[in-house]
Amino acid sequence: MTSREDEALARAAVTALTDQLALTPKPGLPDRSHPTHHTLRWSAKALAPGLAAMAAAARRTGEPTPGLRAELGAIGRCTEHSVALAGGGHRGALWTLGLLVAAAAMDPGEATATAKRIVAHPDKGAPRRPSRGSSVSAKYGAAGARGEARAGFPHIRRARAVLTDAHTHSRLNALLTIMSTLQDTELLYTAGPTGLRHVQAGARGVLEAGGTATATGSKALTALTTDLHNRGWSPRGSAGLLAGALFLEALPATPAPGKRR
């Protein structure tokens, strides 16, 4: 049974995801102007029961044990099915937010470190058939979603250092910070290593131009957005990590390392 605290964590995670979806313009990613925006917002709400159940499991267990890892995996697979019925999407965000919600239920001030301890255990109930992301990770030696979690979500920590406020420019700069270095397996699958480096360089170019709040940076962002749209390349891994950063920013008294409230 979930508590009010578990449901509040789930709501905060869904809000973080819908805030990420509404952010405009996001290069290569669905935003408020995209035809799928309303469907994605609707299916995001289907994450809430599963996320609350993950928080409840973590709160009940109290430690990042192998048993908790297995329970979170089982809940995640059921939640994926519910989301698919509601319109689909959000698989990467579910992985990130599920781990962070569970970790926050145990220790909100050390959520990324606790998530790292959770994924140190294998999910024995996971399908043996490798996912697309894990296959791409193995092919190119990329960390992928699991590697990011096992490292304690370094890109989320970097994004949070950029999130100085809730304004659009701050959030876009945080997204670009993730994109500039993340080995995004979705990009590796669709564009290969050369395409990944191209996107990383484009994101760095916007930041080096002063970020999205400057005229030069805004122009560079528009060019990058048009380029990725024309190529059909989507940095979906970065979007899920931004949602994770927004979720942690919404929690009380959980400042990022080196950052004051």
Rank of each mutant, 00 (worst) to 15 (best):
L40R: 05
E71Y: 03
L47Q: 04
S33K: 05
A74V: 12
S43K: 01
H81T: 15
S33E: 15
A84W: 00
R69P: 02
A53P: 00
A56M: 06
R91M: 00
A57G: 09
G88H: 13
A46H: 02
I75C: 02
A48S: 14
L29C: 05
A48T: 00
R60G: 11
A48R: 12
A57I: 09
A70R: 15
C78E: 15
T65F: 11
D31W: 04
R69T: 12
A55L: 08
L100T: 03
L94D: 04
R60C: 10
A48M: 07
A53C: 06
E63Q: 13
G73T: 06
T79F: 10
R60L: 14
C78S: 15
D31Q: 04
H38M: 14
G62W: 06
R60T: 13
H81N: 11
K45W: 13
E80R: 02
L94V: 06
V101L: 03
A44F: 13
E80F: 00
V83I: 15
T96W: 04
A102S: 12
A84N: 12
E80Y: 05
A70F: 11
G98Y: 11
V101F: 03
H34A: 14
G87A: 06
G92H: 03
L85A: 13
G89W: 04
P64F: 00
P66G: 08
A103K: 08
S43H: 02
A74H: 12
R91V: 07
G92V: 09
L47I: 07
A48C: 01
A52H: 06
G89Q: 10
G76H: 02
P64A: 12
H37A: 15
A56Y: 01
T79Y: 11
A48Y: 01
L68G: 06
S82C: 11
G89N: 09
G62L: 06
G50I: 06
E80N: 07
A52V: 03
R59P: 05
A48P: 02
V83C: 10
H90Y: 12
G67C: 01
T36P: 00
S43W: 02
W95D: 08
T39D: 13
P35D: 08
S33R: 14
K45V: 12
H37V: 07
A74S: 13
R91W: 06
G98F: 02
A70S: 14
G50H: 04
C78K: 15
R60P: 00
A44P: 08
R69F: 05
P30L: 06
A44V: 01
D31N: 07
W95C: 14
S82M: 13
